[in-house]
Design a binder for these strands. Structure first.
Lengths: 195, 195
DNA sequence: TTCGTCATGTAAGAAGTTACATGATTTC
DNA sequence: GAAATCATGTAACTTCTTACATGACGAA
């Protein structure tokens, strides 16, 4: 039972990884995810507790009861087997698919069917969205830099990837807007409802 | 029945959009998706046929039977109501979430737990993946540019976003590699298994 | 005549989400 | 003592994927 069929679903590795970084409870795992990886991975709270149970059953984490009134509360620690499993997953060389599902780009793709002003508004919405992300991530950067100075440089790496690709999206939006909607420099303005 | 509850699931808009661009059958829709939008949206073949049925039921497309032996084959056209629905969706101003689920970035986030050489290999794998995407998209670009010259500029826009996005990832990977693994300029080489 | 590609569909199940139920603890 | 927040869990549902079944048609 201890060495069950290897290779867990990805959310289980997220849970395992968060515990290895110090998260103790399901609640803390969810918080950790929101704080650090939500820009490229999300997990719903309802997924966490079944994952914890499975990881414990497979001996990758150990939980202990913390008595609080008559409601159970459990805190977890990663085991040596868990750390080994996590490292093995990180070292795996299977091809890593890149999955992006973006309604924004999807709408932009079809935007030739829209009126010019609707297309312009959409482009602006997509640009703003990425600009906001750039701002949010840039604000977090000093924290990540400090963690990097303490030896863990990879969270800063993923943060910088996020900043870079959203900045790239902003730039493409801006240059397309400049070429196709030269009149308005800041967002849609007139009712130039051609087409 | 004709004006049922508006706002369809996103995959239905993909199907509707592809039909509006000239795809006639379920098969052609799937092909069109693979050719043009798979970099930011995918749809499985099994999703397409139920979507077609629903769209027809709601009067957004019309299908007609093309007799082929004793197996039915149907081809579809978008209706005026369908075009209106698609435009309304494109014009909708609800906030557009950006959803990225990337195992590559996820692994990189946790990569401080790996050995230095495993981390380096992972970084290289992520860099290659994006470089390949850049190359693939760049190869398609002339086609998209021609379509843009014929009046539909937005497919080229999304293509350029994809190129810029992945180029940004490549650049961040390269600069991180240069800083942290200065010895190896082309991928992991030695067995410097520290940590 | 067999293989590859065009083509349509279903069935089963995995994966993930939302909403809800419950209770503890802290803060005002 | 009310509200906010910490905390755990379940149930119902939707969504999506994989795998399979079926068949037409053209080329080798």
């Amino acid at each position: 039972m201890t060495d069950a069929n290897r290779s867990l679903p990805v959310p289980a590795y997220v849970v395992l990884g968060m515990i290895s970084l110090g998260a103790q409870s399901g609640y803390e795992i969810k918080q950790g995810v929101e704080r650090s990886i939500r820009f490229f991975w999300t997990i719903s709270q309802a997924q966490i507790y079944p994952s914890l149970q499975r990881l414990e059953r497979e001996g990758l984490i150990t939980g202990r009861e913390v008595p609080t009134g008559r409601r159970r509360r459990r805190i977890f620690e990663i085991t040596d087997a868990g750390r080994a499993e996590l490292r093995a997953w990180l070292a795996g060389t299977e091809p890593i698919p890149f999955e992006l599902r973006d309604v924004g780009m999807l709408k932009l793709f079809f935007a030739d069917l829209s009126s010019s002003s609707d297309a312009q508004e959409l482009l602006e919405a997509v640009r703003c969205r990425s600009q906001e992300r750039v701002d949010t991530l840039t604000a977090i950067r000093p924290d990540a830099a400090e963690i990097a100075a303490q030896g863990a440089g990879h969270p800063l790496l993923t943060l910088e990837m996020g900043i870079a690709f959203h900045q790239a999206m902003v730039d493409v939006c801006a240059s397309f807007a400049a070429e196709h909607f030269p009149a308005a420099s800041t967002g849609p303005s007139g009712k130039d409802n051609e087409r």
